[in-house]
Design a protein around this nucleic acid. Structure first.
Length: 818
DNA sequence: CACACTCCTG
DNA sequence: CAGGAGTGTG
């Protein structure tokens, strides 16, 4: 037997003696995720799905799957799309889009024309913006042309280390939004050429340098790849100790001898010349990756630009119509659609509704670029249209009518259609491209385009401090699993927020549909926003906290991903967004919340085998370390450099419903422990209503309480034994008071600052626990491996109600400042 | 199978 | 406190 130190043996022995208390508590899946969404929301969802699949290359797309399911639900029922593989995802997307479209068609009596196209063309001509392009009309042309502009010479077909099984047709890897013919073609091609040359030179340089060095040092990133490639053989290659002992870590002295470092072994495995060619391949693949990212970036920019153009045009038209009406109408529309889709009073969005009026106004100057508002206006116009249609309202909720401009209505209609089709096309094409190859190879013959920053459209707020980070984010799209962009829908809850935990990304994990969709239902549908009705489980405090603070600029999810993820930097974020609207709750302001969530996000990521995304870190020339970037850097935990990507990408900053648990949440949980030792997940969800729950968050919270319990029981046992050793004979002599040592230890742990008055009940429970332990030990029950189980059962019944105040996200302040 | 739980380790 | 492991449960 390969030597395991006695520790391991001991461990295995002790592990046998586990005690599972089987305390049964309702595992609450709060509510059903069934939400309704109108076509706009669906379109949004579709876009985001597309973005997501684009970003993740449709690996492990479970996140979006769940979203898709819920989105589809109103029509298709829950089980429609439960498959989690990427193909089905794209299918879902397509269906979804089709539904959205058909819905629109039904809504609109006026067949769509191409007004937008015309307008856009005119605009382009007028502005002389040679770089702006609108290819909706000639999309097909652009598509077919997309692949022609260049070839990537350093994309060898015989990629030895490629684990992709698909050498599919190159065209499928091409961007559907490839450079359109005409306008910008010249510049682009020139750029392409330059860039290609430069890149080639770089590659050759690298390769030359590598082959010259006597001891070929494989870059870390490529080592990863090799790890991946060789992974299959590892079992045979390495004479590792049995799986039981995970002693490959260098920390294990003997294990280290037996199982020498993996990298070393791996390095020696390949003969020299193979290594050289290997390194070449590696470099090539790096380049390919970079190219891929650039292409993705470009595509996204194109999409953004298109959207922006549409918005501008739309607003131009819209502004010509009467404004005051629209506010009313808009509100009306919210209600209307809300009623239509599914009148769920449980989910209502007060904030959004109230805000919509002022938003519409401020938009005119402010800008333009918030697609969410854009859609709002589209809806408003649609509503107008409906009203114009006359005395026969299409639906019940539609009672009002008023003076309207027929022209504007028609315009709105067509614009809307245009928008919809544009989105559909965008999403469809993106999905088509990126959802197809399960593991898209970087072998696209696609010209790397370096993009002058001027071409990058301005962000929502005009200034674009996050431009670089945005680029970087886009660069990682190909490799990194991006948290579900839908998360940014948190403030437009018509869409089911999905877990953005990457555990979802485990391969072959099929999402269990209904039970998984535990969401906060106090969030309302974005459209069905007639506020007031709350979910019974919901308390006003959390509502006010989660809605009232919502910074208007982040209400709409669209600009966030589409405009290059202009997330707030974790540090500066909420401050800027709130604009002093309210004293924001420290919880939602928590600076390190992203930090906490990082771990969550990474959970399970190791299975994705996306090793190559280290490449852009080492090679990417565009890594300027912008402000946001450096800020994010402070959040990077440690070894896992992937975390940086994740950190940058986190789309959650815009909402009060945060994705991660902050230290304040931890503090709160500790205080809650004074009341409940065994909180149910339902309870946790209720009391941490300012956190968006996904599996990871739930697990983390549960783990917290588990850890609390662990400490608690350890203390109990310790003090019980100590009492026995001290000669205590009877339980009566055993008490717990606020000045007893046991209490101090516990208080130190759960209430370190001692700024919370520990409830008396906890003292009693502690005393009971201590006595239980004492008795059990005295009775010699501790010889039984599961002797604690009985105690656990007793203690778990002693949970008391957690005060309502804990449900407030601001509870910490309210609790501690008194 | 997923989840919650405990136990152990770092 | 988190991660991993092992176990029990539905």
């Amino acid at each position: 037997m390969p030597d395991h130190d006695s520790d391991s043996l001991l461990n295995r022995q002790t592990k046998r003696r586990r005690v599972d208390i089987g305390v049964k508590r309702t595992v609450g899946s709060i509510g059903s995720g069934a939400t309704t969404a109108d076509s706009i929301a669906r379109a949004k969802a579709a876009i985001f799905s597309a973005m997501n699949s684009l970003s993740s290359h449709s690996h492990h797309g479970s996140d979006t799957d769940s979203m898709d399911c819920s989105v589809v639900q109103p029509h298709g029922g829950p089980g429609v799309m439960s498959a989690s593989d990427s193909e089905s995802k794209s299918n879902v997307l397509r269906k979804l889009l089709k539904r959205a479209n058909s819905y629109e068609d039904a809504m609109m009596p006026f067949p769509g024309t191409t007004i937008i196209s015309q307008l856009l063309k005119n605009n382009i001509a007028k502005n002389g913006g040679g770089h702006d392009r609108v290819d909706r009309g000639e999309r097909d042309v652009g598509f077919s042309n997309s692949g022609l502009s260049n070839t990537s010479s350093e994309a060898p077909q015989e990629d030895a280390c490629s684990n992709s099984s698909q050498d599919s047709t190159p065209q499928e890897c091409l961007s559907p939004f490839g450079r359109p013919p005409g306008l910008a073609n010249f510049d682009i091609e020139r750029l392409n050429d330059e860039h290609l040359r430069a890149k080639r030179a770089r590659v050759e340089n690298i390769i030359r340098g590598m082959s010259h060095s006597p001891s070929v040092v494989v870059p870390a990133s490529s080592r990863h790849e090799r790890d991946h490639d060789i992974d299959a053989d590892r079992e045979m290659e390495l004479d590792c100790p049995p799986p039981n002992s995970q002693q490959q870590a260098p920390s294990s002295p003997r294990g280290g001898e037996v199982c020498s470092s993996r990298e070393n072994k791996r390095k020696q495995r390949l003969p020299q010349q193979q290594q050289q060619s290997f390194t070449q391949l590696v470099c090539q693949r790096k380049e390919q990756k970079i190219e891929e990212r650039r292409q993705l970036k470009l595509q996204l920019e194109d999409m953004q630009k298109q959207l922006r153009q549409l918005q501008e045009k739309f607003f131009q038209i819209y502004d010509s119509t009467d404004d005051s009406e629209h506010n009313e109408l808009n509100n009306d529309l919210h209600n209307d659609i809300g009623n239509m889709s599914e009148d769920s009073p449980a989910r209502s969005d007060n904030g959004a509704d109230e805000r919509s009026g002022e938003d519409l106004r401020s938009d005119n100057e402010m800008s333009d670029l918030d697609p969410g508002h854009f859609l709002d206006r589209a809806r408003a116009l649609l509503q107008e249209q409906a009203l114009l249609d006359g005395d026969k309202p299409r639906r019940e909720g539609l009672g009002r009518k008023g003076p309207i401009h027929p022209e504007g209505k028609q315009l709105a209609e067509t614009l809307k259609q245009e928008l919809n089709s544009a989105m559909t096309q965008v999403v469809d094409t993106v999905v088509k491209v990126f959802a197809k190859p399960p593991r898209p190879t970087p072998q696209q013959a696609f010209p790397p385009l370096s993009l002058p920053p001027e071409r990058f459209p301005p962000t929502v707020n005009g200034d674009n401090p996050n431009f670089h980070t945005a680029n970087q984010r886009l660069q990682c799209f190909g490799d990194v699993i991006i948290p579900n962009p839908l998360d940014s829908f948190a403030s437009m809850p018509g869409l089911p927020g999905t877990a953005n935990d990457q555990t979802e990304a485990l391969p072959l994990v099929v999402r269990k549909t209904p039970s998984e969709h535990h969401h906060h239902h106090h969030q309302s549908s974005a459209i069905g926003a007639h506020g007031g009705h709350h979910h019974p489980a919901l308390h006003p405090s959390s509502l006010s906290a989660s809605m009232g603070f919502s910074p208007p600029s982040f209400r709409h999810p669209f600009p966030i991903p589409l405009l290059g993820y202009p997330f707030q930097s974790p540090l500066g974020a909420p401050t800027g967004g709130y604009g002093g609207k309210d004293r924001s709750s420290p919880d939602s302001m928590d600076l390190s919340r992203e930090t906490t969530s990082l771990r969550t996000k990474m959970a399970g990521h190791h299975l994705s085998h996306h090793h190559h995304h280290h490449h852009h870190r080492s090679l990417s020339p565009a890594h300027p370390g912008s402000t946001a970037e450096s800020l994010s850097l402070s959040l990077i935990k440690s070894e896992c450099s992937d975390l940086q990507d994740m950190a940058d990408i986190s789309p959650y900053s815009g909402s009060n419903i945060q994705e991660g648990l902050s230290p304040n949440h931890l503090k709160k949980a500790k205080l809650m422990f004074f009341y409940t030792r065994y909180p149910s997940s339902n309870m946790l969800k209720m009391f941490f209503s300012d956190v968006k729950f996904n599996r990871c968050i739930t697990s983390q919270l549960i783990k917290w309480f588990s850890n609390f319990r662990e400490f608690y029981y350890i203390q109990m046992e310790k003090f019980a034994r100590q009492a026995i050793n001290d000669g205590v004979t009877g339980v009566d002599e055993l008490g717990v008071s606020r000045d007893s040592e046991l209490f101090r230890a516990l208080n130190m742990h759960y209430n370190k600052a001692n700024d919370f008055e520990v409830p008396e009940r906890f003292i009693e429970v502690a005393e009971v626990t201590l006595r239980e332990f004492f008795n059990a030990i005295v009775a010699g029950k501790d010889v039984d491996p599961s002797w604690k189980k009985a105690i656990y059962k007793v203690i778990c019944k002693l949970d008391s109600e957690v005060p309502e105040i804990f449900k407030s996200p601001n509870c910490l302040q309210e609790l501690l400042h008194e």
